[in-house]
Amino acid sequence: MGMAVGVDIGGTKVALALVNEQGNISRHSKLKTDKSVEPAVMIQRIIDAIEQLLKEEGLEDSQISGIGIGSPGPLNSKAGVISCPPNLQNWKDVPIVEQVRAHFPVPVVLENDANAAAMAEKWLGAAQENQDFAYMTISTGVGAGLFADGKLLGGARGNAGDIGHTVVDPSYGQCPCGQKGCLEYIVSGTAIAKRGSELAGETLTTEKVFQRYEQGDANIVPYIDDVFRLIGVACVTLINTFDPEKIVIGGGVSKVGEPLFTKVRDYVSHYALNPAGRETEVVPAQLDQNAGVVGAAGLILAN
């Protein structure tokens, strides 16, 4: 049975897993993302952790089909380089594929983390039957992975789908990227916790903000209703631009569930340009917890 290693690099942790051809995880581990060390040192820790997974499974390096790596962008997937992720500020033009490949005699593939999660949903999740779909993640950041004609749409360097920095409402102020009113600056989990706390006059987590919303807090309800509307705007933009059969929404913010999906579907049904586009399915992701590592392994196993 073929097996691959999936690596999901995040701003706070790196998740690793050994995944088989059915998408089942046999071994997994996590590392803290140490931003105090040079990227090459952190990558060596990832290499050591992969070696440990293989040792625990009783596998030689050459017995795996490959290693898939999902990373925040911007990156250059074709060159195997992580360019300049905002949440990994000292990772500038890091040749991660070259360093990993020097230790393992197998294929090593790098993709944007949203693309890796989209691969997981295509392989095993909510989009198995779809050839054209968009996966949108709304968590610490906002991004999308896109499938067209059954193939992952990467763009020139692998950064297609970075919808978090689409301007949707300049009145919300300046995003750290420099533009005013970016989607991510308004609807990400980080943004919801920050703005919700400001509106409530006390420090709240994203989950607490949603609890206040469900309780009908008059300070919170208008803002969260607008968050849902702007997620709808993003979905309509994806529909008008890429004509997908389905939009799959994952990430921590999607856990609020039906209040979000009901309002987003309603927005799509009114404002997608093509009447057929107004019927585009909008559904929750099925593989959220392990989508990153499973999707990263799927870059090897599902192609």
Rank of each mutant, 00 (worst) to 15 (best):
1 M>L: 09
1 M>A: 13
4 A>W: 03
5 V>M: 11
6 G>V: 04
15 A>C: 07
15 A>N: 08
16 L>K: 00
17 A>M: 14
20 N>K: 06
22 Q>W: 10
27 R>N: 10
31 L>M: 14
34 D>P: 13
43 I>P: 01
43 I>A: 05
43 I>S: 03
46 I>S: 04
46 I>H: 02
46 I>M: 15
47 I>G: 04
47 I>E: 07
48 D>L: 15
48 D>V: 12
50 I>Y: 10
51 E>I: 05
52 Q>P: 00
53 L>A: 11
53 L>I: 15
55 K>N: 10
58 G>T: 10
60 E>Y: 11
61 D>W: 10
62 S>F: 14
63 Q>L: 13
65 S>T: 11
68 G>R: 01
69 I>W: 02
75 L>S: 06
79 A>G: 04
80 G>M: 03
80 G>E: 00
80 G>S: 00
82 I>V: 14
83 S>P: 02
87 N>R: 02
90 N>L: 11
90 N>Y: 07
90 N>I: 08
96 I>V: 14
99 Q>G: 01
102 A>S: 14
105 P>Q: 05
111 E>T: 01
114 A>N: 03
115 N>H: 10
118 A>Q: 00
119 M>I: 14
119 M>Y: 07
121 E>F: 05
121 E>T: 04
123 W>Y: 08
123 W>F: 10
125 G>R: 01
125 G>I: 04
127 A>S: 13
135 Y>L: 13
139 S>N: 09
140 T>V: 11
142 V>E: 04
143 G>F: 12
143 G>C: 13
145 G>T: 12
145 G>I: 11
145 G>W: 09
152 L>R: 02
152 L>V: 11
154 G>D: 06
156 A>V: 15
156 A>R: 15
157 R>L: 12
158 G>W: 08
159 N>L: 11
160 A>Q: 06
163 I>Y: 13
164 G>L: 07
167 V>F: 10
173 G>A: 09
174 Q>Y: 06
178 G>A: 12
180 K>T: 05
181 G>H: 08
182 C>Q: 05
183 L>W: 05
185 Y>W: 11
185 Y>I: 00
188 S>A: 14
189 G>C: 14
192 I>T: 03
193 A>I: 08
201 G>Y: 02
207 E>A: 09
208 K>A: 15
213 Y>Q: 01
214 E>V: 11
217 D>M: 10
226 D>H: 15
227 V>L: 09
231 I>P: 01
231 I>C: 08
232 G>N: 04
233 V>K: 03
239 I>K: 02
240 N>E: 08
240 N>P: 08
241 T>M: 13
247 I>V: 15
249 I>N: 02
250 G>V: 12
250 G>I: 06
250 G>D: 08
252 G>N: 07
253 V>Y: 04
253 V>E: 01
255 K>R: 15
257 G>A: 07
258 E>H: 14
260 L>E: 04
260 L>V: 05
263 K>R: 15
264 V>S: 06
265 R>L: 09
268 V>C: 07
273 L>C: 02
273 L>R: 00
274 N>A: 08
274 N>R: 11
275 P>S: 08
282 V>N: 01
282 V>S: 03
286 Q>G: 15
289 Q>I: 08
292 G>Q: 03
298 G>D: 02
298 G>R: 01
299 L>A: 03
299 L>N: 01
301 L>Q: 01
